[in-house]
């Protein structure tokens, strides 16, 4: 699977209140949540993000609340994947569970600049910066977790396995 899009850069410790503030948790509709995605970090983000775009951030992305609305809002906003120096624990697990691809890569988080065209090869764990002609490694993702992402999240993954009798 290849994810390709324009990079939007954020700093370190982007918390789940910045990703989706609790004042918008009066709905669990992904499309509604997407309208406020990253709003407290960049108020313009929901308007300017394009399908396929990639969020690139510093360490500890997704720290704070356990709200699964955070990866849901990012996914529903059309973001194809998130690259960060590191992820907070609950966000990391939630992202896989709802099928948002995320990649840990300190070198990519350093090297990529806002607006760069980026392509991520999920299977090989390679991140290409098409604008700068650079290539970075991502921390490998275990096979079964890649399958969860490919299925679109844990629910579909389990359902498929049940269906196929595995």
């Amino acid at each position: 699977m290849i994810y390709r899009g324009k990079a939007w850069k954020f700093g370190a410790d982007v918390d789940t209140d910045a990703i989706i503030p609790a004042r918008y948790l009066n709905t669990s509709d992904p499309a509604e949540l997407a309208k406020h995605c990253m709003e407290d970090a960049d108020p313009e983000f929901p308007a300017k993000v394009q399908p396929g775009d990639i969020i690139v951030a510093g360490k500890n992305f997704g720290c704070g609340s356990s709200r699964e609305h955070a990866p849901i809002a990012i996914k529903a906003a059309g973001v194809s994947c998130v690259i960060a120096k590191s992820f907070a624990r609950i966000f990391y697990r939630n992202a896989f569970n709802i099928g948002l691809p995320i990649f840990e890569s300190p070198e990519a988080a350093e090297g990529i600049r806002e607006g760069d065209e980026v392509a991520v090869d999920a299977g090989r764990g390679v991140i290409q910066n098409l604008t700068r002609g650079e290539e970075y490694r991502a921390t490998p993702v275990p096979e079964f977790m890649q399958q969860i992402i490919a299925a679109g999240g844990l629910i579909n993954y389990v359902a498929r396995r049940v269906k196929s009798g595995k």
Partner: peptide, 23 residues
């Protein structure tokens, strides 16, 4: 618990931790 501060019950010598909704 589906709340990040579920770790509170560690004060009671319990392993308690926050998870997301799907978990």
């Amino acid at each position: 618990g589906a709340d990040s501060h579920t770790c509170t019950y560690g004060a009671l010598n319990a392993f308690s931790t926050g998870v997301g909704s799907t978990d």
